[in-house]
């Protein structure tokens, strides 16, 4: 807990007052290069990256959960075998390849990154939704039906709550992967902390590279922690004894 608060503190302080950390990064620079990224506002970049990641995650959650619901209903059962295979195949797609293929289609900037993050984040959510919905014990479903629940009621008040922990886990996985992947978006001119890393790479300034990595890593870890906490809370409220 203390560690987490410290991590959050370091992240917020670094984003608000980056110059305070300059003495720490000066030993990494050569020939008097700036120790702290000076070609943009770190807070703005971090928020831009977080915004891209959250927007992509929202889209992949809506689509992933929707598709997962569809293929586990009677109407969509014919799509189930193929969709599972596609999830397997999709996970072998490197995100860079998705990003690279999206660029010529939609141009440089935020859009290809959003597409790549959406496509890449879709898989864990879709997969976990299917696994979660299908792991609902048949006896429970039978009992719900016996109580006179309609299929919609059954879905809303039995299946979805039972599948919720796994769905949330899928969302967490895709968010954390995407925070890291979003830095690659800077190679196609999306705004984010990847800019800092690439600027460091181009001017061989290790201080830039390290602070870009540090901030991205901190964001990923804190997001992971926050979502684990959220999952615990949700799971406690829906547990069935």
């Amino acid at each position: 807990m203390a560690l987490r608060a410290a991590a959050l503190g370091v992240l917020v302080l670094f984003l608000l007052r980056p110059q305070w950390f300059a003495p720490l990064f000066t030993p990494l620079t050569q020939y008097g290069a700036p120790p702290i990224y000076d070609q943009g506002n770190l807070l703005e970049l971090a928020l831009a990256q977080l915004g891209t990641v959250l927007l992509a995650a929202l889209a992949s959650t809506v689509v992933g959960v929707g598709l997962g619901l569809f293929v586990t209903r009677a109407a969509g059962r014919a799509f189930l075998p193929l969709s599972r295979t596609l999830v397997d195949i999709g996970q072998t797609f490197p995100p860079v390849a998705v990003l690279a293929i999206a660029v010529p289609l939609v141009g440089f900037g935020e859009k290809p990154t959003l597409i790549a993050l959406f496509a890449y984040g879709l898989l864990p959510i879709f997969e976990n939704t299917i696994v979660g919905l299908r792991s609902c014990p048949p006896q429970v479903l039978e009992a719900a039906r016996g109580m006179g629940m309609s299929p919609a009621q059954c879905l809303w008040s039995v299946e979805l709550p039972l599948a919720l922990p796994l769905i949330l886990e899928g969302i967490r996985l895709s968010l954390v992967i995407n925070v890291g992947t979003a830095t690659i978006g800077s190679t196609v001119a999306a705004r984010g902390l990847g800019e800092v890393i690439i600027a460091g790479l181009l001017s061989s300034n290790n201080a830039f590279i390290l602070q870009g990595a540090l901030l991205t890593g901190l964001m990923a870890i804190l997001l992971y922690d926050a979502l684990v906490g959220l999952e615990r809370r949700v799971c406690r409220s829906v547990r069935i004894d």
Binding site: L28, V176, V179, G180, T181, T183, I184, S186, T187, G194, I197, I198, G200, L201, S204, N206, I209, L210, G212, A213, T216, G217, A220, I221, Y224
Partner: peptide, 17 residues
């Protein structure tokens, strides 16, 4: 686990020095 959260571009470039 911590290593996995470091973005790939950053880890690649950090190891250069």
């Amino acid at each position: 686990n911590l290593i996995q959260t470091i973005p790939a571009i950053a880890l690649f470039s950090m190891l250069m020095a």
